[in-house]
């Protein structure tokens, strides 16, 4: 059984990876054919499938990190993820589905901290060689508005 505690440990490691700027390790939390999408609650309610980030492979996530490092221009910034307690929807030895609320603050180069995003991670986990990985993560933001830009991933 994939239990609550192991999912919470997963979230903690995931958040730490992004928040401590180890973006190159971020794709390691996903399966090779993962589905990852960032959207918001209104699109979800209307069944609109697009995302502001939309990936159907781990390689696309690696490419995003490479683009952020090499190509894209944005002010220096970092995130602070706060993860809520996962709601375990289903679980067995190999897979689990859970939703977990999150809050992400963005700390800008100017030193200001803003509440950047809140929402829900809608996750499907699989256990591969004793490690939990995301086979799917839909990031459903509560707000329909993104301030300025979303460079770092949620």
């Amino acid at each position: 059984m994939i239990d609550l505690l192991s999912i919470m440990a997963f979230h903690a490691a995931y958040a730490d990876t992004i928040d401590s700027d180890q973006l190159e390790s971020w794709p390691n939390f996903f399966t090779p054919d993962t589905l990852y999408r960032v959207t918001h609650i209104e699109n979800e309610q209307e069944g609109l499938p697009a995302g502001i980030v939309w990936a159907d492979s781990c390689a696309m996530l690696e490419d995003r990190v490479a683009a952020l490092r090499e190509a894209n221009i944005y002010e220096r910034q970092r995130y602070r993820h706060l993860m809520g307690i996962p709601l375990l929807l289903s679980s067995n030895i190999e897979t689990a589905q859970a939703t977990t609320p999150f809050m992400v603050a963005r700390i800008m180069a100017t030193g200001e901290t803003q509440l950047f995003a809140t929402g829900l991670f809608r996750d499907r986990f699989v256990k591969v060689q004793d490690r939990l990985l995301l086979a799917e993560r839909v990031v459903v933001c509560d707000s329909t508005v993104t301030d300025t830009l979303m460079a770092l991933p949620l």
């Binding site: 697009a50 502001i52 939309w54 159907d56 221009i73 944005y74 993104t146 830009l149 979303m150």
Partner: peptide
């Protein structure tokens, strides 16, 4: 699906448009 993949290029997190937001 092609359109959704290419939409990574645009929008607030778009590879070729995020800079315009800033």
């Amino acid at each position: 699906k092609v359109r959704m993949k290419q939409s990574n290029l645009v929008g607030p997190a778009g590879f070729i448009s995020m800079e315009d937001g800033a």
